[in-house]
Design a protein around this nucleic acid. Structure first.
Lengths: 190, 190
DNA sequence: CCTAAATGTTCACGGCGTCTACATCTGCTA
DNA sequence: TAGCAGATGTAGACGCCGTGAACATTTAGG
């Protein structure tokens, strides 16, 4: 076992992914992550200035996976793609609640411009652009539509994870999710 | 100064309301709340079994205030009332972000039945029922509509507080909130 | 080869939740 | 009215946590 680890920065993020996948945000601590990697707690501080920074790095890794899951559906017209993107977002949140919590509650307020660069948002934007081209969405309504759609799917995920929908069975959750997504899409094109 | 406080249980909740109003969930700790009241940390354990229980009590107090803010608007037809209720929810979240965080992220998954009893939910339900009576909403769509609406306003609040909309100016936030609320309402009646 | 930078460790501090044992007060009952 | 039992508050301790300062080891470059 060498004194130097080799690539501790990414090893810490990998351990953080494992831990937060099961235990959510609270399980993602400096001491537990370094313990998992087999290194002293303060070794983390050579790569991240504090816990928040480590969590941000883990959050970025999670957002990349979310984007991978969301960009897989690219068939049909704009509205169909928008529906798929929205449901994928909710599916990811319900399938990986720990990761979802780290990605969105890891205390990292990003700017709208930075959000627009994120692949997950790009998929949403592409579907909306397609709708505009097809004449299914007024160009003047496009900008607002993105936030309305994001708000609905994000809020639904929250209700299903930490809110009153946590107790309903999974298939009912999916049905309600589809209803919510269909509602915003219908409302946005009106 | 008497040895016994008199009504420590409510005093702890009041202190918790003060603390969380400014510092959010993280500021709501056993040690700080008891310090604020002027009592030893372990005195709290005579009234609440642990920190989570104290946070739930504070959460309940906050939800009561949210309900008070939401039930104030009762004019117009069902759709107008629904719009008002939704915007009030978002206004509350933006005006009191610390309280909003405690109320909804204090780790207390409530059942759908319990949620239906909450006054805040009653206001939403009443507006939807009015729409059904007016023929503006199909009775079969009523149940799903409640969750779609809640998801949208809750998600928007989240985006505006901890997400990419945190950086946009307040009046733009309000405009986007109105657009999102109008979108779900339009989608729900379609 | 030798030195400077990068990387990892050790020790320490204060804050946190919470357990156990103890102190004090209050109300009921004999 | 005296005293006892339960309710309520305190003291001290333990093991977590993040993180700062000082020190050790390894690696890279002249």
């Amino acid at each position: 076992m060498a004194y130097h680890h080799g690539d501790l920065a990414v090893a810490l993020v990998d351990a953080g992914l494992e831990l937060s996948r099961e235990g959510g945000l609270d399980a993602l601590t400096i001491r537990e992550v370094t313990r998992r990697v087999g290194v002293s707690p303060n070794a983390a501080y050579r790569h991240y200035p504090n816990l928040a920074a480590l969590r941000e790095a883990v959050s970025d890794a999670i957002l990349a996976r979310l984007a991978g899951a969301m960009t897989s559906g690219e068939a049909g017209d704009g509205a169909a793609r928008l529906r798929t993107v929205g449901l994928m977002y909710i599916d990811f949140a319900l399938a990986e609640p720990g990761w979802f919590a780290v990605a969105f509650f890891g205390s990292r307020p990003i700017t709208p411009e930075a959000a627009a660069q994120a692949p997950a948002f790009r998929a949403l934007a592409a579907a909306l652009d397609a709708m505009v081209e097809e004449g299914a969405l007024a160009p003047s309504a496009r900008a607002d539509a993105a936030w309305s759609c994001w708000a609905t799917v994000h809020g639904f995920a929250e209700l299903a994870l930490h809110g009153p929908l946590a107790a309903v069975p999974a298939e009912e959750q999916r049905r309600l999710a589809a209803a919510a997504v269909d509602a915003v899409i219908a409302g946005v094109r009106a």
